[in-house]
Nucleic acid binder design. Structure first.
Length: 841
RNA sequence: GCCCAGGUGGCGGAAUGGUAUACGCGGUAGUCUCAAAAACUACUAGUCGCAAGGCUGUGUGGGUUCGACUCCCUCCCUGGGCACCA
């Protein structure tokens, strides 16, 4: 410990150099110094093979496309880092990696806009992003970064594709898919929001194209069931649940009159199956043509389908409120009622859901409207209890549906029973009668994985005339993405690589004959669906990931990221993890044990966006105020999962706070007791002891619950208390700095050194609080008259235990006497240590 | 339409059945200074009052309770998710 020149207590205003340390807080100087020192000492690079108590602290890696990292990214990373540092200071070996999700449409679109080749753009972005990421003071392990666009990474993305193909989970099919005319590629369902491309907001068209899919639907039930096993933000779980969209019901099966064809139709409300009076089929359904072929209906029906398809192709269709339809001339032999019911083509039937054929009745809003519009007969079988209402339903005045206490009339076996309670029995009945079978339907579709773009891993498949699709042999991986000048998307349904025979001309891996490579690349979300496995294995070239390390470090202990990935990245990652589990490559099914979604940072109340030009880049703030100030400010704006509002004046306030802490430590250090210990003890007064313990409890509790805003408020209160004290004990400084360390790592480290402690504060244990000290402190008890606050009492906690004495003391206070005068006390309620309430007349 | 968050001073927010507005920002006054900035000190929900003190107050209206920002019901608003899903 350096010798100190003694300074007087009010020396805060006089700047002096003490033993070479400038008394004024200079953030950029100390931040660079400690960042360098931390990296040299490798305090954030745990030994992945030997670490005890491993803790994998992950945050979603950024797309490094745009102008650079903005404060929104920094907010997420800082919040995640505070948690990681908190775990490290509880003795965990924290692994906190970072990388770049640099492949994909997002980055490529940016490169096109900036008129740079994506390869070149990636190089620039990487440099810029890593520089920024280093400046924010996170405890990243810089020895293990991952960039999805590097061959050593995407080699394994391709390998993963091949594993899925071999397991029968990757397949090709022609299907109506979403196509973005601006990005000139197909998109997955998850990447279309309200009919618009999530990247560029163009209207997504429907096109019939031959594409690669991953069979995520096979995992629908497990993806759903797994949600109850993991500790995730509830809103994300709900979003996934809704996206998977499981709906249970029955599949009914009936013959078409005069044809040797049976139709199956899904019904999620089987209770009213006796009400079916017509059937509708989706316009895209292949069977429609079979129904009308050679009949008088063929021409009008096919015309109708053409019109509807046109409307659907521009996705304008959902704007149409009125359902449209046309009669096919065919009937279904509906055995339950013994009637032949007409089959219509209807615009509102969805080809991709259920069987594309719907059984229709008076008890469904859309069916009801459709039937009324086209004069199709309806036959209600369920009625309200109220006879007046029941008559209205009978007269088809309105559609009666989903009524919990609706009374069934048919079938006779269930007459008089309630809709709500009869469901299970009806399903059983339908099965017994042989009308159909219980079944579930899902909203989830298979994951469309191919993209007709350049900037991604080429899909490692080869097409051979004789042997059909063959995977590239693993020894030939990676299929390198060649550098081509004409990388821009074509919009023809073909990827840019399709213009490069030197790329696609190859030999079939099986028969060695002439063959053609797949020229599409895979979706970016495949790159990011497994990166958390690669982080622990970046030094390994022979495997996608090291099984032993994965066993040691995964599943991820804490994952922090944006809720916008609820049904994208977070669902895909779970799916890929389950696939790898089933392939016997890993032992767990869920990749992220705990996930928390961070909130959004807005600027002066408005969402940050490029078009508004209000994106805040952290660099200038870090330069001016330091990363510590910006970190604390961002964390202080609100609860971490709610986000906050970025205001310049706010960060100035935080900067002031850190300066005050700095000044306090420097100013009061001469009054501290040093470790050798004078008689004044290592601790301060009793009051100080209580305050310290209270602060430890509050701050550690809040950080653990990601309530950083109140943790900082607690630290400020502690500062305010300490600065009012004449003497501050060394332990009080130690506690202050340790609690500050996760939030403001640089200044805490600097001051830690200044008070003579050993490097590094980030390898210390957080202090424990002593509950018995808290219990022994003074309490303030509120005195109420009829629930209104009329005074307070300050007593020891011992005293507070005695109701009679508290009551006596309260009654004796002058203020209370006044209120109790000439009143009859009816009741006295005493809540120990908190409140005493006199209920009077 | 269904589901999930949320609505508290001039502003960000705190308090999840027991002293509403912690902490910070902003503001006002003061100290220091030739002056300014910085820093520091005090005050800062509204309202009535010289004051002591009183009254009102957590989106709306009601309820439960000795006591409600907190629990229950009604409605309104904001943000997010799902949506011709049969």
């Amino acid at each position: 410990m350096p010798k100190l020149k003694s300074i007087t207590a009010d020396a805060g205003s006089r700047l002096k150099t003490i033993s070479g340390i400038n008394e004024k807080h200079n953030p950029s100087e100390i931040e660079l110094k400690w960042q360098k020192r931390w990296e040299e000492a490798k305090i954030y690079s745990p030994n992945l093979d030997k670490a005890q108590k491993p803790f994998y602290n992950l945050m979603m890696f950024p797309y490094p496309s745009a102008e650079g990292m903005h404060v929104g990214n920094m907010y997420a990373f800082t919040g995640a880092d505070v948690y990681g540092r908190f775990q490290r200071m509880q003795g965990k070996a924290v692994f906190e990696p970072i990388g770049l999700d640099g492949f994909g449409i997002h980055s490529e679109n940016y490169a096109i806009k900036a008129n740079k080749h994506p390869v070149e753009q990636a190089r620039t972005s990487e440099k810029n992003f890593y520089r920024q990421l280093k400046s924010i003071g996170n405890g990243f392990d810089w020895t293990r970064t991952v960039e999805t666009y590097k061959p050593e990474y995407y080699k394994w993305t391709q390998w993963l594709f091949i594993q899925l193909f071999k397991a029968g989970l990757a397949y090709r099919k022609k299907a109506p898919v979403n196509f973005c005319p601006s990005c000139k590629t197909v998109l997955a369902d998850e990447q279309v929001e309200d009919g618009l491309c999530e990247r560029c907001n163009s209207i997504a068209e429907k096109r019939d194209l031959d594409q690669w899919f991953f069979k995520i639907t096979k995992y629908a039930d497990r993806l759903l069931a797994g949600l109850s096993q993991i500790d995730w933000a509830e809103k994300v779980k709900t979003a996934q649940k809704q996206w998977i969209g499981k709906s249970e019901g029955v599949n009914l099966r009936f013959k078409i009159k005069d044809m040797d064809i049976h139709f199956e139709m899904f019904d999620s409300v089987p209770q009213t199956f006796m009400a079916q009076t017509f059937t509708v089929i989706a316009p895209e359904h292949k069977m429609v043509y079979e129904l009308v072929k050679g009949t008088e209906h063929e021409k009008p029906v096919m015309e109708f389908i053409k019109t509807i398809k046109k409307k659907k192709s521009i996705n304008k269709f959902d704007l149409e409120k009125k359902p449209e339809g046309i009669f096919t001339g065919r009937y279904l032999e509906y055995t339950p009622t013994g009637k032949s019911i007409p089959i219509w083509v209807a615009s509102y039937a969805i080809y991709g859901y259920g069987t594309g054929v719907v059984n229709c009745s008076a008890h469904d809003e859309r069916d009801f409207i459709f039937a009324k519009r086209y004069g199709i007969s309806l036959h209600p079988v369920m009625f309200p209890k109220d006879p007046v209402e029941a008559k209205k339903v009978k007269n088809l005045e309105y559609c009666y549906h989903h009524a919990e206490d609706g009374i069934l009339q048919e079938p006779v076996e269930f007459k008089g029973r309630k809709w709500e309670e009869v469901r299970g029995d009806i399903v059983h009945y339908i099965e017994k009668q042989g009308y159909g079978k219980a079944q579930a339907q899902y909203h989830l579709r298979d994951w469309l994985i191919s993209r007709q773009r350049y900037w991604g891993p080429p899909i490692p498949m080869i097409y051979c005339q004789t042997c059909s699709w063959q995977p590239v042999q693993e020894k030939d991986l990676p299929v390198k993405l060649p550098f081509i000048e004409d990388y821009k998307p074509l919009g023809t349904g073909q990827a840019p690589l399709a213009s490069h025979p030197e790329f696609y001309k190859t030999k079939c891996p099986k028969c060695k004959g002439d063959a053609k490579r797949e020229t599409d690349v895979s979706d970016t979300f495949l790159d990011s669906a497994w990166y958390f496995l690669r982080y622990v294995s970046t030094d390994i070239e022979t495997m996608a990931f090291d099984t032993e390390r994965v066993k040691k470090w995964l599943p991820v202990n804490m994952y922090v990221g944006g809720a916008e990935h609820s049904v994208l990245h977070l669902l895909y990652s779970r799916f890929i993890t389950m696939c790898l589990h089933d392939l016997g490559l890993i032992s767990f099914e869920e990749p992220f044990t705990k996930f928390r979604a961070h909130g959004l940072i807005v600027k002066d109340g408005a969402k940050m966006s490029k078009s508004k030009g209000n994106i805040v880049v952290p660099d200038a703030y870090i330069k001016k105020f330091g990363a510590d100030s910006l970190r604390c400010y961002l964390m202080f704006t609100g609860p971490f999962d709610m986000g906050g509002n970025f205001r310049d004046s706010g960060i100035e306030g935080m900067s002031r706070f850190l300066k005050r802490v700095w000044a306090l430590v420097h100013r009061k250090k001469d009054s501290m007791n040093n470790k050798s210990g004078s008689k004044k003890s290592l601790l301060g007064s009793n009051e100080a002891l209580v305050f310290m313990n209270k602060t430890i409890k509050k701050v550690t509790g809040d950080i653990g619950n990601l309530k950083y805003n109140t943790a900082i408020a607690g630290l400020m209160e502690y500062y305010n208390f300490l600065s009012s004290q004449k003497y501050i004990a060394i332990e009080e400084f130690r506690v202050l700095l340790k609690l500050l360390a996760p939030l403001a790592p640089h200044i805490a480290e600097e001051l830690w050194e200044y008070i003579g402690e050993k490097f590094s504060i980030h390898q210390q244990f957080l202090p424990d609080f002593n509950e018995s000290i808290l219990k022994a402190s003074y309490l303030t008890i509120a005195i109420q008259i009829n629930g209104k606050l009329r005074g307070v009492l300050t007593v020891t906690s011992q005293f507070s235990k005695d109701k009679d004495r508290v009551e006596q003391l309260a009654k004796e206070s002058d203020k209370i006497k006044k209120y109790l005068k000439a009143k009859e006390i009816k009741k006295i309620i005493y809540i120990e240590g908190k409140v005493i309430n006199f209920v009077v007349t």
